[in-house]
Design a protein around this nucleic acid. Sequence first.
DNA 1: GACACTATCTATAACCG
DNA 2: TCGGTTATAGATAGTGT
Lengths: 222, 222
Amino acid sequence: MEVANVNSRKKNMGRRKIEIRKIEKKSSLEVTFSKRRTGLFKKASEVCVLCGAEAAVIVFSPGGRAFVFGHPTAEAVIDRFLGRDTGTSSRAVVPAEQVVHGQVQRQYLEAVGRAEVKEEGGFWWDAPIENMGLNELEQFKGSLEKLREKVADRVEEMALMMVMESESGAGPSSATMVEYAAPPQEYNPSAVLHARDLAAHSQSQAVPRGFYFGFGFDEPRF
Amino acid sequence: MEVANVNSRKKNMGRRKIEIRKIEKKSSLEVTFSKRRTGLFKKASEVCVLCGAEAAVIVFSPGGRAFVFGHPTAEAVIDRFLGRDTGTSSRAVVPAEQVVHGQVQRQYLEAVGRAEVKEEGGFWWDAPIENMGLNELEQFKGSLEKLREKVADRVEEMALMMVMESESGAGPSSATMVEYAAPPQEYNPSAVLHARDLAAHSQSQAVPRGFYFGFGFDEPRF
DNA sequence: GACACTATCTATAACCG
DNA sequence: TCGGTTATAGATAGTGT
């Protein structure tokens, strides 16, 4: 038995304390990102199982690569939160067989994933009709026509409103507008509050103030 | 000095191992949910700071209460992921002062938050125009008219396409359609894959198979 | 429900192959 | 870029207040 080489293996130094601020060394940043992303997703899965919760997590690497937990659930969950009711995505549920160590297989990725992120302004009404079957076309056309009606109504209503408005003077502040999402517009990253720019870590609070925007709505008690 | 009552404090038993499955006792489920939600958000904030990442987390309690990390960043991040480009929300950035221990103050909640979740089908074009000022009205009308044009074009294109389609036989499968979100429709929770229904925890993999749908897209290397 | 305590359990930083 | 190892920092279950 190798009694002699007990000491030949260099002693690992184990985990060391680190400050929570941007990691400078690129290689360890990438390793840390990978490990912590995995850890985050695991934590999310545990909350789901332990508490019967539904969780969705999206992480963008600094290079802009997207990693998602809870997809395709995520989309529905997110829609429900945003109150958008855009419906669940028509994307198929990823079968477990397609998921290999947390990576969707290339085949699936190519079939489903890429267009989403690359496409500019991927509204549903922009979907390419070239490859649709007749059934799909009809359904799609139906949806479009509904939307057209709705928008036409709205425009009329608007015109009316604007006449009244200009007669009665300026309306109340824009404060109430705040409840609704803005019309579609270019995604402007610089206009967005970046999490990474927000305040640093604090000891006393679990999540640093000014960083944690978590909140719940009132209706359900729990 | 109280030398006598050293032993009067009952010894705590410390953390114990638990299985990752639904907690039965309601009271400890709620405590656990609260603690782990906080922990999850903290982890997310650390990934952001350490790696310069952007993360968004949404957790629904079993009662349907929503908790968000990264809001309002979350919405932009999510939109970018979904390729929706619905634009960043016009909702104001929550000032740090409004955030108290991770809970948005009631005042802010009432002003901003509630309508979002309760409103049925809160598309931006449904925003109430009653309280808009003239400027807002004009902007809003402009957006509506753009949308109307776009949709009208699309409908025409569709009509044309359908004639061709019906002449040439059925088109290819619906596989390509999958790249685009479905038209707006009722949110149907039962049609959604619930995270909590998915497979249980496994030891060898950090995140259990069939649960972890995390993936990245190809374009950026990191 | 929020906080404090503390003995554990778990995640992970640095290192290696 | 991946897994595997080790020592340790950090998270948290159960409890009390």
